[in-house]
Design a protein around this nucleic acid. Sequence first.
DNA 1: AAAAAAAGAATGAACATTCACTTTTTTATA
DNA 2: TATAAAAAAGTGAATGTTCATTCTTTTTTT
Lengths: 194, 194
Amino acid sequence: MAKLQKSIDKRNALVKATIELVNNNGFHATPMSKIAKMANVSPATIYLYFENKQDLVNQTYIEVKAKYTNYAFKDFDTTLPIEAGFEHIWKRIADFKLKDSEHAMFLAQCDNTPMIDEESRKEGIKHLQPLLDLWERGKKEGIIKPISDYLLYAYSINPLSFLMITQKRGAFKLDKTHLEEAYQSAWSSIKVCK
Amino acid sequence: MAKLQKSIDKRNALVKATIELVNNNGFHATPMSKIAKMANVSPATIYLYFENKQDLVNQTYIEVKAKYTNYAFKDFDTTLPIEAGFEHIWKRIADFKLKDSEHAMFLAQCDNTPMIDEESRKEGIKHLQPLLDLWERGKKEGIIKPISDYLLYAYSINPLSFLMITQKRGAFKLDKTHLEEAYQSAWSSIKVCK
DNA sequence: AAAAAAAGAATGAACATTCACTTTTTTATA
DNA sequence: TATAAAAAAGTGAATGTTCATTCTTTTTTT
């Protein structure tokens, strides 16, 4: 138990260090030695927990992605009406992206780079189902536009990544008002408009 | 003249090779030696045209960004009504992102990575002014939502990057119909809705 | 005392950049 | 216009560094 405990702590420290360094320097400039130093561990120790650097990054990605989707769909009530259900999920995702920007930033970087194995990427996408189901239902009820899920995602969810990155760069700050405006834009873009 | 000609060819070949390799392998896995090989040039020659790797990447970024905005605003008529003007720009941007996906992909990767100097990044943003002017006018006329330009961009333009990447990964194909749907979503998200 | 975990130092490969030399182009002179 | 000296462009092979990974030894746990 003590042994396991200790191990998990080190593993977590390594994952945390990876996220932090990749966020600040990019994958191309985060050597194993720095990861080890930041996690207070010898470089050799990393290899007790991970096969190699790629494995470390893949596992980190999968872990962060899971944290993201868990947060997004926590307490989601599938019986909610479409708009309320969407608003709930949207606001939780917004919350995650803007408050936990360390993790969100890491995901954004992974999602736009050939840094992650295709396999791990697929692993990470799996958990979006509840949102897809909601959209499916919304299309049937004539509330959501009958268009590809990729389009719905691109317009209603993905903009949050851009806003998060922009905010992180200090170009502007997303406050409560902006957030409500953003939500309205997201909803306008996918709802059926008369 | 002959001399200049030759130089520009090599320089272009280097820039082109950089784009291609960074697209396929990521910045972290494109060594100068490969860039040189792909451009049919000795590694040492790169340093006749660029200070170092960072400089090569920065210059490539600025060049591609300029190509993008030039394309987007070519023949733009500032006297067009708001919606028609927006549609024109939007469709040109869509055209660029989907048809010239090599360049668009490179920009997407640069925009989400600490791969580019902050200075070069600023250099690249400068040329978006015509769109911002259009929005300004649209807000005054009560046609465009009176919200931050960052929000307008996030919802009406940025989704195209996501769609381009998704398409590049082979997950789905953006055809004519999708494109019209995408435009409608973009416009719905920023227009004032009664 | 044996096994597991961890460490620091070593290894070898890959890399960005520079060096010393060669080829090509330009310029100046006849 | 032809030619030779000078300059520029280009090269392949070093150079020194950085890095991922492994090896050997030490420390901790069982």
